[in-house]
Design a protein around this nucleic acid. Structure first.
Length: 238
DNA sequence: CAATCGTCCTGCGGGC
DNA sequence: TGCCCGCAGGACGATT
């Protein structure tokens, strides 16, 4: 499912393809990502916003499939296909774009991260990392991988975290998201980049949907947190 | 403030 | 073989 690295990949690719083109008579001046949203900005200040949710795809000059929900036609004859098997994804046109997301995961500084955590001391760490108002861009896959890399179990209360653990979580937010972007994201379920290609990062997953820890071989534990499946290694994470 | 539950939707896999 | 059932999950609103 598209999280920050997947949307970032699509954004980077579309930037190259569609800036300067016209859509319904409006000139495209930028393509951005905010949290998990992909935003196409027009010269008149309006924007077209997409959320791909679980199974959405945005494919440039693709071809129509049974999951194609909308085809955007640019002034030069090129097209953008919005496909979505489960119809959770959406797009909308807005006169101006504003949001109330938290700081971007790749931009947040450690001081800010720590002070924000203090306000959530009675929450479990994994749902906090997935809270877009706390920090923007992280979903179920990457929160699980980040916590594995930090050696912290997903159900740990924030107030129980030691300074060193907070530091490791912070460092791995940056490290894992950057590595995933480098590999053009993770193709679980339906994710494809804007060229219709799969992301490579799936093969680097250590715990997400794994039976066995990819580091030590211990059987992975699976629990439900906030209605979402969470995977962790009882040996590598404490 | 925190946690849980229902809601949207449909492909897929398991069971019989 | 084919049908039915339940699961997966991002975000949001309602409830406890």
């Amino acid at each position: 499912m598209p999280e920050l690295p997947e949307v970032e990949t699509i954004k980077n690719q579309l930037k190259e393809k569609i800036i300067g083109k016209k859509l319904d008579g409006r000139r495209i001046i930028d393509v951005r990502r905010r949290a998990k949203l992909l935003i196409i900005d027009f010269k008149d200040g309006s924007s077209l916003i997409f959320h791909l949710k679980l199974t959405g795809q945005l494919i440039f000059n693709g071809k129509e499939t049974k999951f194609t929900r909308k085809i955007f036609n640019f002034g030069d004859g090129t097209k953008l296909f919005f496909n979505d098997a489960r119809k959770f994804g959406w797009f909308k046109f807005v006169k101006s774009f504003k949001d109330d997301f938290g700081p971007e995961a790749l931009q947040i500084r450690r001081r800010d991260f720590r002070s924000r955590l203090r306000k959530r001391s009675n929450s479990k760490i994994k749902p906090v990392l997935m809270d877009q108002k706390f920090i923007a861009g992280i979903g179920n896959i990457y929160s699980g991988e980040i916590l594995f890399a930090a050696g912290v179990r997903p159900m740990r209360l924030v107030k129980s975290l030691k300074e060193q653990e907070i530091k490791k979580i912070f460092q791995n937010i940056k490290k894992i998201l950057k590595a995933a972007i480098k590999h053009k994201g993770s193709s679980v379920e339906y994710y494809l980049d804007s060229h219709g290609k799969k992301g490579d990062y799936t093969k680097y997953h250590k715990v997400y949907q794994k039976q066995i820890c990819q580091k030590c071989g211990t059987k992975i534990n699976r629990i439900k947190l906030a209605g979402r499946s969470s995977h962790y290694c009882p040996r590598c994470q404490s």
